[in-house]
Design a protein around this nucleic acid. Structure first.
Lengths: 374, 374
DNA sequence: TAGAGCCTGGACAACGTTGTCAGGCTCGGG
DNA sequence: CCCGAGCCTGACAACGTTGTCCAGGCTCTA
């Protein structure tokens, strides 16, 4: 675990989930001595200091800093000089306190390091930037408590809006925030027990199409390896798989399906099992990018050709032998759509919450077109 | 361009770079009507409201919310009830204003969507979390003005510290911030004209080792394709290349080196040129992950075998034919090291700024071991 | 030249929280 | 019965900024 024993810990984020108020009940641990009275903000100059130095009133400085009219060029020059000389920088905390808007939005996702979330996050950031807002983000690590903790910490900072890729299934804890006017959009997965905007991919349809593609190339025994079933996307993709199979008149066997953590070891075992025995699968549909990568590795170690279609595109998929056929979703579009909706909520131009579903796209590259090898 | 014509734009971040005060001189565009006087924060309850409802004093509520001692269980219960009933959430802006610390750090990087920065960002976040701080981040898109704009916006929010992957080369604009005690660490690339902590990879040594590897396999005509020379990492890697070549007694020809944007089209052209003509290169050293990916695509279209070593590891590199030999740097370690140093600055346990260089690792997978094919 | 109107600048309160400090209560002992 | 000690509680000021409002000086016109 990381070292957190040092003395910097100005505001502990770890909120006991039982109480939802954003406060802490645990006693303080060692912490940095409080600010010496009289020193403000590491001695940062304030508007008062600037005013004193420029020989003008406080409000005049405010006017200059905010580009408000009603200041003579000469006065403005004097103020600017003082600002430069003192290295003054407006304190946005105070500004926020006064104005009520923070010009920042929060993004809670599963893992910033996942190649799927990078572009999504970037897209949200671009939209935020276009609206003059900053992005604060945090990773939930697929842990519902941590998600709630993060969301509430963001609310305590009074973000104007939240984009959430939920880890948990119950979001009633957000009700007071919604009532208070925090714009909220869920992405990638729906919200539980609250009525908010949701932007998702067509996970069901995408998976069905991907599996149908395998069926069209003659496969009957097709395996499915996916994420934990409590995750909505995983469940939907499994449903797509089952539907495609049923529509083709195939009775799905339990041994063909494996759901669980996307840890390489688990996935590897699942794949090996499906590929062994008297009646091994001849094709595998993988439920997300991490699973796909691991299965590619497994298949590379086998001599028998096994067809593969994966959910989520992966880099270099086209250069492998054979190229990896995938059901691609547009992560950037998910993020962009969600963020745009968020700002429309803030505009007031948006009325009832809606569920938006973005299409997926089957990209054929070879691995899905292999015929059954038995 | 993104739509920013809507009315939500509470605090424009776009600061004219000429003036460094965090204020705006452009006249206001349309903007949301100011808060109706009397309504506070979308009618969010405050401690005062909680106090009134619980029939206690303001400070008692504060004590309960912050888990301070000196409140009877009965009083605490009443306060908790009121908190629950009103959906109260502490306003951290006010808290920050009072306490002087924001418990947040800023991260400015080039592009969140780049697979190199995802893990770095995540590592910074983990360290921040361990110290009870939130992460605010922004992408500079390799634009110096945008970097400055972002950094200053973060400073206006009074982040406690900054982790910066610089785009620009001059950071004197940070001097007032440093003086004011904003902890600062530069990562991946050094800072310009200011004395701060820097954490970088051994770009020079890594590139030299990678090129030496090619030399050891008999190559003499080795090409180098890298990022723009004004980017420190690109320049260092080029220097590593030249040093390795010179140490081997080879006079580097201009036609072997190509530096510029990592746009696939430019890289593709550069590679094609090196591979054509009477004396084509027999091996290529690529300066970063994006270049490597494009060059792999180019080489896949050629029949002649060309050796390749790339800077930065890339996913699935082991599964290509041949596997891609790379000089890997540890993005997560860069982020972790930088963030840990940042918090040590905030602790006060850190003295003089330092430059930390992390080693790189040559991972051989085949592409670098191909013999010259002429 | 007086009065009206405009322009500039500044005093003041408020935003929601926390640190300081003092007052009131209970309880036990003299 | 009174007093002091110790524990709870709350009044108040301050953090830095911005919106409101008013004062004073200027220009322009009658």
């Amino acid at each position: 675990m990381l070292d957190a024993t040092s003395s910097y810990n100005p505001m502990d984020l770890r909120i006991p989930v039982a109480d939802r108020t954003g406060h802490r009940t645990v006693p303080e641990t060692t912490r940095r001595s409080d600010r010496i009275p009289g020193t403000r903000y590491g001695n940062r100059p304030t508007m008062k200091d600037v005013a004193a130095r420029a020989g003008v009133g406080l409000k005049t400085v405010s006017r200059v800093v905010n580009g408000e009219p009603g200041v003579t060029p000469e006065t403005e020059r004097r103020v600017q000089e003082a600002i430069e000389a003192l290295g003054f920088r407006r304190n946005d905390s105070a500004r926020v306190l006064r104005k009520g808007r923070t010009a920042s939005i929060g993004l809670v996702l599963e893992d910033l390091a996942d190649p799927f979330y990078g572009p999504l996050s970037r897209a949200v950031e671009e939209v935020a930037r276009a609206h003059g807002a900053l992005l604060i983000n945090g990773s939930s690590a697929e842990d519902a408590d941590r998600e709630q903790e993060l969301v509430l910490a963001l609310c305590a900072r009074r973000v104007d809006g939240l984009v959430v890729i939920p880890a948990g299934g119950d979001h009633r804890y957000l009700e007071p925030e919604l009532k208070a006017g925090v714009a909220t959009v869920f992405v990638d997965r729906p919200a539980g027990h609250i009525d908010v905007d949701v932007v998702v991919s067509d996970n069901f349809g995408g998976a069905r199409d991907g599996v149908s593609h395998l069926l069209a190339h003659g496969h009957r025994r097709i395996g499915f390896i996916g994420d934990m079933p409590r995750i909505h996307t995983a469940a939907e993709r499994l449903r797509g798989y089952r539907t495609a199979m049923e529509d083709a008149g195939i009775a799905v066997e339990d041994a063909w399906m494996s759901l669980g953590v996307t840890d390489p070891e688990r996935v590897r075992r699942a794949a090996e099992e499906m590929l062994s025995g008297p009646e091994p699968v001849t094709a595998i549909f993988t439920g997300n990018n991490r699973v796909t990568v691991t299965v590619i590795r497994v298949l590379a170690g086998h001599t028998r050709q096994v067809a593969l279609v994966g959910f989520d595109d992966i880099e270099l998929a086209d250069l492998l032998q054979p190229g990896v056929t995938v059901v691609a979703q547009d992560a950037a579009a998910l993020g962009r759509t969600a963020a745009e909706r968020l700002f429309r909520q803030l505009d007031g131009t948006l009325l009832a919450p809606e569920r938006i579903e973005l299409p997926t796209r089957l990209i054929t590259r070879g691995s899905g077109e292999l015929p059954p090898a038995d």
